[in-house]
Amino acid sequence: MSFCRGCGHQIHETAQSCPQCGAVTAHSTLAPAQGGSLWLPVPSLVCGVIVAFALFDPSDWDQDQVVGCALIAVVAIVLGGISLAKQKKGAGMAIAGLILGVVGLLGAIGSQL
């Protein structure tokens, strides 16, 4: 027998949740998945998409637009890199944000050449 972390009620070792308070046990398959949250990969992807859409603007860019695009691209790259290094969850979004950020940064630099 073990004890519930939520209320201290004695429960069976194989119980998925506490019958007294309903708290999920530590060894339960219902426990939340480990690996991080989506707070880093989602903003990375959003910034990467913004920069990628900005590259479709056919007009000539002034200095402010280039700097803004480059900064947003750097944010996408940094957030994507940190997300890939620190957590497993959202790795696909982090990779997409990282790639779009690099493409956007290269496009911003290329627009000044």
Rank of each mutant, 00 (worst) to 15 (best):
V42E: 00
A76F: 04
G35R: 06
S28E: 09
V46H: 03
L38Q: 07
A33P: 00
D62L: 00
A33E: 08
V67W: 15
G48V: 05
H27G: 14
L30Y: 01
Q63E: 12
Q65W: 13
V74I: 14
S59I: 15
V66C: 05
S59N: 15
V46M: 01
S44T: 05
I77S: 06
P58R: 01
P41D: 07
S37T: 15
P32C: 07
I82C: 05
D62V: 07
A73N: 05
Q34S: 14
D57P: 04
D57E: 09
W61A: 14
D60W: 15
V49I: 14
V75L: 12
W39A: 14
W61E: 07
C69A: 15
W39F: 12
V66Q: 10
S28Y: 06
I50W: 08
V67I: 13
I50C: 11
L45Q: 05
A26Q: 10
S59E: 15
I72W: 14
A31M: 05
A26T: 10
L40T: 02
V46I: 10
A70Y: 07
V51T: 07
G81H: 08
G80F: 04
V51M: 09
L30H: 09
I82H: 00
L30R: 13
I50V: 13
Q65G: 11
T29F: 11
V78H: 03
V67C: 03
L71F: 06
G36R: 09
L40S: 07
A54T: 01
V51A: 11
S44P: 03
G35V: 06
A76D: 03
I50D: 01
C47Q: 11
I72T: 12
L45H: 03
V49Y: 07
G35E: 06
F53L: 12
L38A: 06
S37C: 07
Q63W: 13
G48L: 04
I77G: 01
V75A: 13
P43H: 08
G80V: 05
D57F: 10
